[in-house]
């Protein structure tokens, strides 16, 4: 089976698949959010916020923490980035390249916006989701945007020779 795909497109498609996989696994394994560390707000005492610090999550008790929602949303966005990468391999024509590039840019923007504006992470300055997951997802989002731009801009080189 031979896909008529150039080396550059293959490289960019691979980059999108890897970035998508990293977006999916980062909040759970690489820089895990609070929930992935085995603690959820369900274990919180209703009096806890007045027991000591008022520097809490900003979420009501009994609910999933912000970082938990962020991790779930990023899993969906990461899966879409992987699909975009695979689409670039399966449909290596000029129009689909542009479509995948635009989708990549959009998904990169959403990847960075979810932990910053759309959902957010926990308020605490030293929360694992704030010091690890947040910067990692922003960097992954920016890299996805860059790859998306490259998918649109880079011209096709001759198809790879199948050995």
């Amino acid at each position: 089976m031979s896909f008529n795909i150039s080396n550059r497109s293959l490289l960019l498609a691979g980059a999108l698949v890897i970035l998508g996989a990293l977006i999916v696994i980062t909040p759970w394994y690489i820089f895990p959010v609070c929930e992935a560390k085995g603690v959820s707000s369900h274990s919180m005492s209703p009096m806890a916020s007045v027991a000591g610090s008022d520097q809490s999550t900003g979420m009501s008790t009994g609910a999933l923490m912000k970082c938990g929602y962020t991790a779930r949303a990023e899993a969906a966005v990461g899966a879409l980035v992987i699909i975009a990468g695979l689409a670039l391999i399966a449909l290596p024509n000029r129009i689909s390249r542009k479509a995948v590039g635009i989708a990549g840019i959009g998904l990169g923007v959403v990847t960075a916006l979810i932990p910053t504006i759309l959902i957010g992470v926990c308020n605490a300055a030293d929360a694992p989701c704030r010091i690890g997951t947040l910067p990692a997802l922003i960097i992954l989002g920016i890299l996805t945007i860059v790859v998306g731009i490259l998918v649109i801009l880079v011209r096709n080189d001759p198809p790879a020779v199948a050995n």
């Binding site: 809490s56 912000k66 300055a125």
Partner: peptide, 13 residues
């Protein structure tokens, strides 16, 4: 004076 943690995501102040 150290404050108590409310949950994993609340700051120890």
């Amino acid at each position: 004076i150290a404050t108590m943690p409310a949950d994993c995501c609340s700051a120890l102040v």
